[in-house]
Amino acid sequence: MPVFHTKTIESILEPVAQQISHLVIMHEEGEVDGKGIPDLSAPVAAVQAAVSNLVRVSKTLPPSGKLSQSFSASLRVENACTKLVQAASMLKADPYSVPARDYLIDGSRGILSGTSDLLLTFDEAEVRKIIRVCKGILEYLTVAEVVETMEDLITYTKNLGPGMTKMAKMIDERQQELTHQEHRVMLVNSMNTVKELLPILISGIKIFVTTKTSGSQGVEEALKNRNFTFEKMSAEINEIIRVLQLTSWDEDAWA
């Protein structure tokens, strides 16, 4: 089970997470063997500078909406950094200080967790962009119900095509970005179904239009077929929206 939800987040945080795990192990050994940690003022100052930059960037973000969560995450990173500064100061005085080692680990973990929350907040914003496109398609699909002439059908097809292409591209990029294999497969399967159903829907509308226009029998049947395809497509797009919002944690909780 991947720890980080996306490959971008994983590529940024996985190396730090591994380093911290290593430090924890050494800390445990250090407590037993009495190994010391010399002055860490310089690397802590580098972390401090990076955190100050993050806080500065966070303050430039809009105060409303979910992006404000990034501000609270950056505050947590700032607090964690304070622990690192304290750890460096304590270690300067005593390289064997156990509380300093605890501060070092707590601070590093706090930075990891705060940065992870921050990146997740931004990832959620990206997901919302994709969901907006999906909802636009869902909304436009309902227009199928008012297509009654061939001219309407041409316009409908012309309008639906680009939106569908955009959605397919976004979903494909997103699935490639996910670390959770099951979510990737779910997105790919649902998107493929939607793509397969699109020509069936167009064909269904065409049959309905021609049957109705010519006054032939089978209008009800054509209507049912069109609606069945429309409902199936809507269900798949809703499934895509659901999966887009899943994280590994949600999946575990659901299981």
């Binding site: 380093q19 063997d33 940690i37 690397p43 993050l54 990034s70 940065t115």
Partner: peptide
């Protein structure tokens, strides 16, 4: 983008710090 870059910088600096702490401990063994 700016946040992503800022997060990358923090991750890199923290990684360097933790690495320094781990390496220093190793040297003192």
């Amino acid at each position: 983008e700016q946040i992503l870059e800022a997060a990358k910088s923090i991750a890199a600096a923290t990684s360097a710090l933790v690495k320094a702490a781990s390496a220093a401990q190793r040297e003192l063994v």
